[in-house]
Design a protein around this nucleic acid. Structure first.
Lengths: 157, 157
DNA sequence: TTGCATCCCATAAAATACCATGCTATACCA
DNA sequence: TGGTATAGCATGGTATTTTATGGGATGCAA
């Protein structure tokens, strides 16, 4: 039995004409062990699909409810945005989910998708876009790293 | 069996001359599993119909009753409006509810309706109006998001 | 009896569950 | 350590079920 439930690794899978993709086996295992379901939505910040367990969304719902007023405009906007876009995805006996046209379009995915672990969440990218994004992130980190170090000690590398 | 009961996704359905609409299958599943019923009322804040399970309204009522400190006059008025306007909608064997003229008029719905998940609640819009509303919300959030981030750390694209 | 509302049936389309296969990664044994 | 057997996984195809939706029948009320 697993102790830690985090989405990790980067896995490429094919997307067929129906939009079917195998959810990486390890992701499936997590969802099963948590006795939860997958929820996907369009990322707000990047051209990719984002996914998490339904449990996490449930927590988010609770948080929105407690931190904003029942009749407030903010609660209205937030819930519309989050839950209006999200959708449950149950996987079949072979471990596949069927992504919607809306999601695939937003991520620019046609016949191949790449799953990127993000801990409690994961993302699904068009592989080419992800390659660029990963490069950007890595260079970004390298740019920031010396700055952070200088502040603390004296800089390195 | 489902653990989490949240209305999600955005689904377009037709409204026939009798005012009949199919409640999205997933919404029905939630209502059934909660062994509850659908309640709809005119949204107080937007030109749309709002719906939730009877259970939620029950909770709201209970909260008002048990709340020690008196509610403000406005809040009281709001709850009056909601409960006064709300009505049960049972769906038939094919999963349809019959919306009233009053509700349809308030939302400007004629032959097509779009269901928007909001977590514990959902909304029913005229598709065109919803398109505008969604755009408004997205731009609103994009404006606010950087602000929220700057307060915490240093902001991000 | 007539109008209105509810219920039931039929059908086409779409979503989803199932089956089969080849491949890959893992485990096992010499 | 190297080779082989095994189990798990991704993937293509097919069958079945569910869902949306139009039309009609039934029952109640005015």
């Amino acid at each position: 039995m697993r102790k830690v439930f985090l989405f990790m690794d980067t896995i490429i899978n094919k997307v067929d004409a129906k939009g079917r993709v195998s959810l990486p086996a390890d992701y499936r295992a997590i969802v099963k062990e948590l006795d939860s379901e997958i929820v996907c939505y369009r990322s707000l910040t990047a051209p990719c699909i984002e996914g998490c367990t339904e449990d996490l969304l449930e927590k988010l719902a609770a948080e929105i409810e407690t931190s904003t007023d029942f009749f407030s405009q903010t609660q209205d906007d937030l819930t519309n945005l989050v839950f209006g876009d999200a959708r449950r995805f149950t996987f079949d006996s072979t471990g596949r989910i069927v992504l919607t046209e809306k999601l695939l379009k937003h991520a620019g995915i046609t016949d191949t998708a790449i799953f990127v672990g993000k801990g409690r969440k994961f993302q699904i990218w068009n592989p080419e876009n992800w390659a660029k994004e990963e490069a950007r992130i890595r260079s970004e980190v390298m740019k920031k790293r010396p700055v952070l170090n200088t502040q603390k000690s004296g800089g390195e590398a």
